[in-house]
Amino acid sequence: ENLNVVGSWSSLPLHQQYEAPFWSETLPEASGGDIEVALTTHDQMGLGVGDVYRLLGQGVYDVAMTVADYAVADAPELEGLDVPLVATDASTAREMVEAARPMVDDIYADRFNSKVLAIAPYPPQVVFCNAEIGSLEDLEGLKVRASGRMTAKFLEALGAEGINVAFSEVPGALQKGVVDCAVTGAGSGYSAGWWEVSTHLMPIPLGGWDSVVTAMNMDKWNSLDAEMQELIQTQIKTEFEDPAWESAQDALVNDIACLTGNGECPYGDARDMTLVEASETDIANAEEILISEVLPEWSERAGDDWAQRWNASVGEVVGVQIAQ
């Protein structure tokens, strides 16, 4: 069986440490040579991030993985997979994702003609500011760079101004004050040198966890025999999904240590950004805004059915209910 696989961002650890070894070594070996894989990534192919699953559904390749948030243009109900701030540690985030899994399965089958194989996290999307902030409320009136629709809406609800800046331009934009704050993974921010141009770090998942969904074209999936399907499903769970989640919490702790100097930095020199802990009032206020504005808007975009399913699954796990 030949599989053409398109991975997520080639420069990030999730691809380098987990995706690439799994698809190019682990799975072919486990199949005893029955599966052969050709692996590339969507950034190397120059694909628009919104096109990755569209083309997967059309059979342009067999397997694809990218951030689910990129695909919400075609499927607003998918925004419910990655709600900002409700999961503050990796184990809660995993419970949230597992509760959402049946919904995600249905969405991918309907919208993208594909079978979901795994959902793995990028490190949580935290806040870098080149401005004095002490709490979440201080974001009000600041210019913030965010990606993803729900995060942008959430920032708007907080009274911040969303500004669109390409990732590569963020350091310059922070330095010159084009934006005051920017949201990205703590590790990406460390390796891209954002600590040089920002002073304060608020390590709460304002941008959610950017879950990366691995999916296979449905026709391809159906063409595999039951044994092969079973093999792929168990292998991807034990050899890819589990290890990726296990390292997620450690990665966050390490990334914060590297950026702020609180603790050992295993990747290089520790930096001295000011750590801004979100207080309980902060979190409570944020949840209030989520429940009163952001989530009801989402339920309008996605439809009430999806809001009900969300309340019954993810909502139960994180203790948040959308008013109907």
């Binding site: 030949n2 053409n4 694909l47 096109d51 083309l55 059309q58 059979g59 342009v60 390749y61």
Partner: peptide, 8 residues
């Protein structure tokens, strides 16, 4: 390639 790249 055996894949229908044209669709992209």
């Amino acid at each position: 390639t055996p894949f229908p790249l044209l669709r992209g």
